[in-house]
Design a protein around this nucleic acid. Structure first.
Length: 546
RNA sequence: GCCCCCGUAGCUCAGUGGACAGAGCGACGGCCUUCUAAGCCGUUGGUCGCAGGUUCGAAUCCUGCCGGGGGCGCCA
């Protein structure tokens, strides 16, 4: 069971009541909301259906509300205690004891799958993220990109989509040679060449590699890239990120019939390219870009953009329904040309989503430091994790919307107290584990079987907690559909607060009254599972003890 | 000049048409014979940048302006 959620049932009832008052046509024209009112006196749920139907029916909103309300009352039967008309025509639903206990039973029956698996239609989604340049270490900006891309992938997968996590390796082009030259120069005790890589890690690479002073430059470059990539893989893994496909840019240029060449041929067929000044241009301006872009220089060399075309062609041929690209803030100038590139290859603009991450500022002792490489102040992803741990790093990077800049307070993130939100949420989870241990596994199992037997009046904290648990499915849907993992973080914090209020007001183990202890144990188990799932979707741990 | 993001409480930010705008931090004041005090409660605090418009209803949608950040190579 569990296919129809208690919320979905309420929605269906609102739809049916609307139809019976305004007809099928009227119902179709209104899309009523069903929301949890902020104010307690406004019931468990409220709908604006009557206000939307009023102009269709041609009657005052409150009159329509009376009619819809009485329909709702008879449709919902014993699930509802009363329906009130309020304000300009809101309908406030006050739900019964039976509805609340049945709702908890629904949550429990769904088990650990609760809240997921409902995407319609399910899509094959490619999420490309991080794609850090392998010629340098990853910094805190990449950490945000990694945390976001990974959490998004987790959420989309939980929602029921088929997800591939992909990392694009920039292992082609003149920068690779420069990288090799820089390592070699350091190995020989010299300065890197003009435009080369100056930073300390290059010196360290020169020592770690086998005899770079005397080998071929490209061999040195490749060995350097391989080592850097291996380190990135390890860093990401430690950060909780597993990449499914490591895609080499160079591979797009290799072989008898390189993908880039195939892309050129395809674009030519579609009439998207032309020759001018000896170069091959793509008509990106025909698809919203400021100007056309070069694919092949007059020298015969391919531009970086040529690789992008080959890469997109490859992704399209792999059959994804959606391509998501998680890009750093410094790449937003590429959005238009990437879109244009995708459309040039015949893609539907809706199937490519470019998600731009805004910057991260680290704040320590009230001082803000930037991630700017230019100023040489950037903190590596490894440093950040070493400083505050994976859980805090991921939480703090994920709790804000991706399109707003983040101030990451290092001191707060390290705080092992309730002032630190990630700690607070984990603590609530651990607290439930402690309660379960006190009750004993056998007692908990029995409680789950008789969760609906609560015979007394429900405490307001119990009612509130049931409704907070019910909201999880919609939160997951919103987080997935709007590419917004931060909603899960906000939800997790609210659920932890709601559980904590329940814990304060309602004794669990040893509670008096028929079925009360069982109900509260079951409610605790459902809360624990949902907290654990929320944290997992963010890639944050859910410890049983702290 | 053109383009993108942002402007909501002292600070960092939620809130993509509904009822008195929310959270965390900060500040101030309380709470340990009680399932984790690594905790809990309360108080404080806002012309939702500004001006128009659409709507029964706007932080939310539209237009203009102001302020902050970023991007605009036949580099990768």
């Amino acid at each position: 069971m569990g296919s129809v959620t208690p919320i979905a049932q309420l929605r269906a009832a609102v739809e049916a009541a609307s139809e019976s008052v305004a007809g099928a046509d009227g119902r179709a024209r209104a899309r009523p909301t069903l929301e949890r009112p902020k104010q307690a006196g406004h019931g468990d749920y409220a709908t604006n259906a009557a206000m939307l139907l009023a102009p269709v029916v041609g009657a005052p909103p409150r009159d329509v509300a009376e009619r819809v309300g009485s329909e709702l009352q008879s449709l919902l039967g014993e699930a509802v205690e009363r329906v009130e008309v309020a304000g300009p025509g809101f309908l406030n639903l006050f739900l019964s004891h039976a509805w609340h206990t049945a709702a908890l039973a629904h949550v429990l029956e769904a088990g650990t799958a609760y809240g997921g698996g409902a995407a319609a239609p399910a899509q094959r989604v490619n999420v490309e993220f991080v794609s850090a340049n392998p010629t340098g270490p990853m910094h805190a900006g990449h950490a945000r990109n990694a945390a976001y891309g990974d959490a998004l992938a987790r959420i989309l997968a939980f929602r029921g989509h088929e997800v591939t996590r992909e990392f694009y390796i920039n292992d082609h082009g003149s920068q690779v040679r420069k990288f090799g030259e820089s390592i070699q120069a350091r190995a020989r005790g010299a300065e890197p060449p003009e435009g080369g890589y100056q930073a300390d890690y290059v010196r360290e690479l020169a020592q770690a590699l086998d005899g770079p002073a005397d080998r071929d430059v490209m061999e040195v470059a490749d060995a350097g890239l391989a080592l850097m990539l291996e380190r990135m893989r390890a860093t990401l893994q430690a950060f909780g990120v597993e990449i499914d496909v490591w895609f080499s840019e160079r591979s797009l240029h290799d072989g008898a019939d390189p993908k880039v060449t195939q892309a050129f041929a395809r674009l030519d067929e579609l009439g998207q390219t032309y020759r001018s000044d000896g170069a091959l241009w793509l008509r990106t301006s025909a698809h919203g870009d400021d100007k056309d872009r070069v694919l092949e220089r007059s020298t015969g060399e391919h531009t970086y953009f040529a690789s992008d075309l080959g890469y997109m062609l490859d992704k399209r041929e792999r059959g994804f329904d959606r391509l998501l690209l998680v890009l750093g803030a410094d790449h937003h100038g590429y959005v238009n040309r990437m879109r244009a590139a995708f459309e040039s290859l015949g893609g539907d603009p809706e199937d490519l989503e470019l998600l731009i991450m805004q910057f991260v500022h680290l704040v320590q002792r009230g001082e803000r430091s930037s991630m700017s490489k230019r100023r040489g102040e950037f903190v590596s992803l490894d440093d950040l994790v070493g400083e505050i741990g994976v859980d805090a790093a991921r939480w703090f990077l994920l709790q804000r919307s991706h399109d707003t800049t983040v101030d990451l307070d290092i001191d707060l993130a390290r705080e092992q107290s309730s002032e630190n939100p990630v700690f607070y949420v984990q603590y609530a989870h651990a607290r439930i584990a402690s309660i379960r241990a006190k009750a004993g596994a056998g007692r908990v199992e029995a409680a789950l079987a008789e969760a609906g037997a609560h015979a007394g009046d429900l405490d307001p904290a119990e009612r509130t907690l049931v409704k907070k648990l019910l909201a999880f499915g919609e939160e997951v849907a919103e987080a997935a559909d709007r590419r917004a993992p931060h909603r899960i973080a906000a939800y997790a914090l609210e659920l932890a607060q709601t559980y904590t209020a329940f814990y304060r007001d309602c004794l669990v183990v040893g509670a008096e009254g028929e079925g009360v202890e069982s109900f509260r144990l079951a409610l605790s188990v459902a809360s624990q599972r949902t907290l654990a799932r929320s944290l997992d979707l963010l890639g944050v741990g859910a410890p049983d003890s702290m």
